[in-house]
Amino acid sequence: MAAGGDHGSPDSYRSPLASRYASPEMCFVFSDRYKFRTWRQLWLWLAEAEQTLGLPITDEQIQEMKSNLENIDFKMAAEEEKRLRHDVMAHVHTFGHCCPKAAGIIHLGATSCYVGDNTDLIILRNALDLLLPKLARVISRLADFAKERASLPTLGFTHFQPAQLTTVGKRCCLWIQDLCMDLQNLKRVRDDLRFRGVKGTTGTQASFLQLFEGDDHKVEQLDKMVTEKAGFKRAFIITGQTYTRKVDIEVLSVLASLGASVHKICTDIRLLANLKEMEEPFEKQQIGSSAMPYKRNPMRSERCCSLARHLMTLVMDPLQTASVQWFERTLDDSANRRICLAEAFLTADTILNTLQNISEGLVVYPKVIERRIRQELPFMATENIIMAMVKAGGSRQDCHEKIRVLSQQAASVVKQEGGDNDLIERIQVDAYFSPIHSQLDHLLDPSSFTGRASQQVQRFLEEEVYPLLKPYESVMKVKAELCL
């Protein structure tokens, strides 16, 4: 049975990233139509530049190519590739079939990587351009969430054990800070992308030097003109047959890092959902379990974690691919890159769409948070109580021993009897502590235990987050809708 299948058929496997999760716009960027249309555009740009620099290419040939950029006979191309065992030459023939007058000058002087690699770089750039505003929107939604809850005390956790208090907004800023680093890295790697350009079979530009009869300047002009037509500021000066596969490492490393950030955020949300302090959106008709109707599973956060793990592992592909590119190139890269580049971007696209949807509907339960604080705060307040007693004339050592005994009794009630923490009640009825009984409410005010959390939130948002989001103001209103 021949390899390949009808990918629109229910009898043929289709990647869930495309069929179930990723956005239509990201799927289109990695589609065959987008790819092969870009090949034709690159052939047109090459012909236009070659004509401008004096090669015998007519206006009629150029116009014929322009008129057929979208006229792609995919069936013919597939048949040609089956016959020739070469995808680029299959599309040269297919393009030439609908451009008979231009057929002889299509791909003039070029090698397969002229269309293959340059198209990949265009796709990487455009895919990054799709991700950047999506990530900015996630940051914006979380920034709104953090600002609104900047002063809401909550129990902090280290080692997932109760620690000092923080605020809900401050905790959210930990998430935002990681995503801001990801946004900066995505922008950097996007701006650092260079075009492969017009380089020939081993990167020496020998074929173009021959076409222009040894004119170095025209060869350099050709490279520059096509690079500018493709919208790049610069091209690699040095290439082998391909652009260095280190570029793929750079791009997928940034995406993998984004995956790590999203995994951490969504894990926190899942843990908070278990504590009943916070939940992701839950639709009115949504079913959490087929057997347990009360369940409210954090399905979206779980999906993000599941896909983020996949995204983090994909960076190993370009690392290994770059390491086995012998001399000017081997074909070890080809099949692998067809999979890992598309999957990385479709996965990143999915987790950003999902995280935006989550961040637009996060639900906080202040009463649950308050109750958990009441359970733990008495123990945390013991040092403040000791200091207040010393100020009232008591002995630190005597007070410490009193607190120690009462704390152990209260802990026994919590752990052995399943009761509430009654340390404060014990202190309130103990005559030894009568000098500070009137101060206990103040000493137990949760806001006095959150330090500068709310001020940190305000400063972080104003100095770091809002300036970073400013270039994306025009796209901030787009909502994230999930079908599944």
Rank of each mutant, 00 (worst) to 15 (best):
I424V: 15
N118V: 01
M181F: 11
R20W: 01
G156C: 06
M181Q: 09
L307K: 08
I106A: 05
V226E: 01
L155D: 04
G393N: 08
L222I: 07
C98M: 12
K276C: 02
S31A: 08
H93S: 14
V88M: 05
I72Q: 09
S454L: 09
F236H: 13
W45D: 11
V465W: 03
E250P: 07
T58C: 13
E48H: 06
L468R: 08
Q41F: 13
C266Y: 05
E280K: 03
A206G: 14
I436N: 04
S334E: 02
S67K: 13
H93Y: 07
V247A: 12
S474L: 14
L17R: 00
L346H: 12
I139S: 10
A2Q: 15
M389N: 04
Y466N: 09
G116H: 00
L307V: 14
T111Q: 01
A22E: 07
L135M: 14
A322D: 05
L469P: 03
T202K: 04
L130A: 08
R37N: 13
Q63R: 12
H159R: 01
S448W: 10
L255Q: 06
K477M: 11
G419R: 15
D59V: 09
S31R: 03
W175A: 01
S9D: 09
V219N: 08
H442V: 15
V405G: 13
E25L: 08
P435Y: 07
M225V: 12
A47F: 01
V88D: 00
K367E: 07
H97M: 14
R459S: 12
T52R: 10
M389Q: 09
E213G: 13
N185D: 05
S257W: 09
D120T: 07
H400V: 05
L423Q: 06
V363P: 05
G104R: 12
F157L: 08
A344T: 05
A18N: 15
V262S: 14
Q455R: 13
Q51A: 10
Q61D: 10
T38L: 08
Y432F: 14
L108S: 14
V138P: 04
T313K: 06
T330I: 04
P378R: 02
A480W: 15
Q184Y: 11
G104Y: 09
N336G: 14
K264V: 05
T330G: 11
P100D: 10
I436T: 05
R196A: 12
A453Y: 09
L258P: 04
A110C: 07
A348P: 04
Y13D: 02
E60F: 08
A47E: 03
R20L: 03
L355R: 05
M278W: 05
D87M: 00
S334W: 05
D11W: 15
S9V: 13
G8N: 15
F28G: 07
E228K: 15
R85A: 02
